[in-house]
Write a protein that binds this DNA or RNA. Structure first.
Lengths: 104, 104
DNA sequence: GATTTATATATCAAATTTGATATAATTAAT
DNA sequence: ATTAATTATATCAAATTTGATATATAAATC
């Protein structure tokens, strides 16, 4: 997980002024980064290496690296579940209506 | 989406007393149902048929039916994103640490 | 600065999901 | 009750993801 988010944010500002249609892709990338970071962060807090987490999940280090990679959005529900379970966490998915006032 | 959740809940209680190891599968099924229901519910509120939603997503009715099916957990995040976007909603993914007090 | 240790990236077969078509089953409308 | 409309299920090829191996890059430790 590359900790380059801040620099990235500044760069994207510029790009968006020139090409607003880029927003859509950014939205996805943003959330992707978020999921990746949640996993990365929790793994760190538990003091695990990618290799150790991989063993808990039952896979290989490179696959964990892929999931934690900022620009990867390909994962399936089942994969994320396996990982969160290994991290002793739970996965929560919310579909939040666009115009809902209730947004907690 | 079959509205049989209540009956199901009663039945599962019984099964669990006989086979507690069944819990794990239930957890998944439960969350799966939840995601399915969130989509179903929002679609209803927007007054859309599966066919109409399918068109918005750019796919076919049967695929929407699959996603809304209670026991389907195979979806990809890209798929969920496409659907939520068509519903003018946003997808939120949270990985909640097992022993966190902060759980909002 | 050399050597482990940890993480990132590339590639590819195997496994899984998606999209489409067809059709059954359910529900609504007339 | 028929018919029309909606939703569910089955199947299969095409597309995508996963898992594994290999290797490159980066970071830490000695």
């Amino acid at each position: 997980m590359k900790r380059i988010k801040d620099d990235l944010d500044k760069t994207t500002e510029k790009i968006l002024k020139e090409d607003p249609s880029f927003q859509e892709e950014l939205d996805r990338a943003d959330r992707a980064w978020d999921v990746a970071f949640q996993i990365y962060d929790l793994r760190q807090k538990l003091g695990l290496t990618q290799k150790q987490l991989a063993e808990l999940v039952g896979t290989k280090q490179s696959n964990i690296a892929r999931i934690e990679s900022a620009d990867y959005t390909g994962y399936t529900f089942k994969t994320l579940e396996k990982v969160t379970k290994a991290l002793k966490a739970r996965l929560e998915i919310r579909i939040i209506p666009g115009n809902s006032k209730i947004n907690l």
